[in-house]
Structure formats: structure tokens, C-alpha cells
Amino acid sequence: MAKLGELSDSELVGRARTGDEGAFGALVERYMRSAYAVALAVTGRHEDAQDAAQEALLVVLQRLDECRSPEKFAGWLMTIVRNRARNLVRREVLRDTDQVPVSASSATPTPERDMETVELRQGLADALGGLPEIQREIVLLHDLEGWKHGEIADRLELPSGTVRSHLHFARKALRGALAALQPTEKDEVVR
């Protein structure tokens, strides 16, 4: 018997429809990071991205019978995540919390590294914030989640050329923004 993680989306969706907790858990495991990345591309904030991704995964389970093409589950899920995230932004319920997870301060090995990471995250968030939403989504799915061009094109229902084009422009913009974040040799010496 195949492990749940090896089953196709279609098979897992079929099982999850009958209340199979393992199958639904496998779907969550497979797509929770991508759902978070898509939500982060829309909201730009960790807390809201987390809420949108979690809500979307629960909504997906409730509406699983409406998924007419289980083989396109990922694209369907990402659409729901995107809509949830947009609703969060539209309703202006963004919480006044810092963009860094609350538990972050105790999780890093040293305060120095913690500060460095926080600065990096802030710079990256600013750089990403300057990109159009679709470019943020594509660059996060590709460079953070490791989705391939074809997977992004298929799941977001975009032409492959459009995906490549968005990725190219997003990377170009990030390259410029990140160049400023790269520590120079002089900085290294000072440290």
C-alpha cells in the first residue's frame, strides 16, 4: 500500500472527501508552505499570511465537494488562499503587530544573528513590497517553495512564458534591492 505522501492530489482529495484524516493531513503537509507563501505575497505580513493560509485550508476541506477537478487541487487551493488574503487586506483587519513572529526572539542562537536576520527580513519585505502581487507570488513560490516554472504555470493557470517573464522582472528588482543589503567587505572588517 502506497504511503499517503506518495499519492496524487486527486487520490488524496478523494480520500479526504470521505473524512480520511491522514489524507487531508498529507494535503496540508504538501501545500501549507505554498499557501503561506501566496498569502504572504498578498498581505506582506507574517501574521496575516498565517491566518489566511490556515483559514483557506479549513475552507478547502469544507468545500472539497466543489473541487470538480481534484487533479488541479493546488491551483484551486491557491485561488482560495489569495482571495482570503485579499479579503483580509480589504477589510483592513491587519493587526498592529510586528512582521516578525512573536516567538522569533527566543528561537535564534544569538542576539547578533537575530538582529541581522530581522534587518534582512525587513529589507526583503520592503523589496518584495515594491513588486506587483503576481510577481511576489511567483518569486516566492519559485525561489522559496521550489516550485518549477511548469508547476507555477499549471497551478496558477498562467502561460509558461508569462511566469518566466514575471520571475525575470521580479528577480531583477530584488537583485537591485538586495545588492544594498549585501554586507560589503568593509562591513565585514568592521565586524
Partner: peptide, 17 residues
């Protein structure tokens, strides 16, 4: 920078912190 970009992007992964 390209190599660094992917590494930097991983800082957006909540698991990192």
C-alpha cells in the same frame, strides 16, 4: 547576489526563526 537571494528568501520561512 542570485545565490544570496534564495538564501535571503529563506528568512521569510517562519521555521527559520
Amino acid at each position: 547576489i542570485d545565490r544570496g537571494r534564495s538564501e535571503v528568501l529563506t528568512t521569510l520561512d517562519p521555521e527559520q526563526m
